[in-house]
């Protein structure tokens, strides 16, 4: 089988580009730890409260160290449970300062959901039986909409919350 000289040039260039992409991605993933979320931690979807993070009193935003936060959320059709505020009302918005490190932990009580803080790299599938977990630095100021981005039923588009990052 014969390859034209230019086809060789092109294939070397193309495959070289692909290899370059893979080196960049691989370096970031394996040395810098920026893998997409995967913790392979399982949970009983019918009894998520048995897990410490998902006890009703532990839901929502908590500062664990200076500039370090954990947010625990339970997803169910068609709601994100961020716990209750001081008045006993469900929390729909959390606020963190710019530059803080936030660990999002979320699981589902029923069907598959998505969890995306739109405009950031926080984007996870949420599946019954699994704990989804992603730590990120909130680099940019603004109001970011949390959307369920995996179809979960006929009111799927009404499943949302807000993350505000302030100066």
């Amino acid at each position: 089988m014969h390859l034209h000289k230019f086809e060789k040039v092109w294939l070397i260039f193309g495959m070289g580009s692909l290899a370059l992409f893979l080196v960049i991605l691989g370096f970031a993933a394996f040395w810098k730890g920026t893998h997409p979320q995967s913790h392979i931690e399982t949970i009983d979807p019918e009894n998520v409260e048995a897990h410490d993070s998902f006890k009703p009193e532990n839901l929502g935003l908590r500062e664990v160290a200076d500039g370090k936060y954990i947010v625990n959320i339970v997803a169910s059709a068609f709601n994100y449970d961020f716990g209750m505020d001081a008045d006993g009302k469900p929390v729909k918005k959390i606020r963190v300062p710019k530059g803080s490190t936030v660990l999002f932990q979320i699981t589902s009580k029923d069907v598959v959901h998505g969890f995306q803080v739109a405009g950031t790299n926080v984007n996870m599938m949420v599946e019954p039986g699994h704990v989804s977990r992603l730590e990120t630095e909130m680099k940019n100021v603004g109001e970011f909409t949390v959307v369920c981005n995996e179809y979960c039923g006929i009111a799927h588009h009404q499943m949302f919350a807000t993350v505000e990052v302030y100066e």
Partner: peptide, 8 residues
């Protein structure tokens, strides 16, 4: 060659 390089 030029066309595929532009694509690249």
């Amino acid at each position: 060659l030029i066309a595929v390089m532009l694509l690249g």
